[in-house]
């Protein structure tokens, strides 16, 4: 067992973990933060995307021990006092989901894009989301929502 200290959505947790514990399982099974789903389990789908020290990562491809000393933001840490971010509101308003399973990963990947490129083109949005699969194939509204969030200063993520 290895001792880790990880800040998740603003709260610091100290835990003993097996080195083989994946970050996504740590978040879900240990901390109960089930907002981050396991999608494909093969690093392809991006549903489990979280922010690790300011960068989007697939939490199924990171060990919990690798997050020791780091700050993690999950989809559950985006809102403040129940108030959605502009990006979340844009997803809601543009109906950027069908079954919703990919939504947490889409939000985290889109948030990462908008931090680096606040005014992306539709093509740039599609490239930035290439590691996130929507099995309902609801990409049109997802791209529209990201563009809407980017174009509106008020709703910007």
């Amino acid at each position: 067992m290895t001792r880790i200290s990880v800040k998740v959505d603003g709260t610091t947790y100290e835990d003993e973990v097996e080195p083989r514990l994946l970050l996504v399982h740590y978040l879900r099974d240990r901390l109960g933060l089930t907002g981050t789903p396991v999608g494909c389990d093969t690093s392809n789908c991006g549903a489990c995307t979280v922010d690790l020290d300011g960068e989007s990562v697939k939490s199924c491809s990171v060990l919990a021990v690798q997050a020791d000393g780091c700050a993690v933001t999950t989809v559950q840490g985006l809102s403040t006092d129940g108030e959605w971010t502009g990006l979340q509101r844009a997803f809601h308003e543009r109906h950027a989901l069908q079954c919703g399973y990919c939504t947490p990963g889409m939000l985290m990947a889109a948030r990462d894009l908008l931090k680096e490129n606040p005014r992306p083109t539709a093509d740039e949005v599609r490239h930035a989301l290439e590691g996130n699969l929507c099995r309902c194939t609801g990409y049109q509204n997802i791209v529209r929502a990201v563009l809407a969030a980017a174009s509106d200063e008020e709703v910007r993520a």
């Binding site: 690093s43 960068e55 989007s56 990562v57 697939k58 990171v62 930035a128 590691g131």
Partner: peptide, 9 residues
Amino acid sequence: VADPAVRHR
């Protein structure tokens, strides 16, 4: 190479 999240790691 891969996608942005993979390129971060």
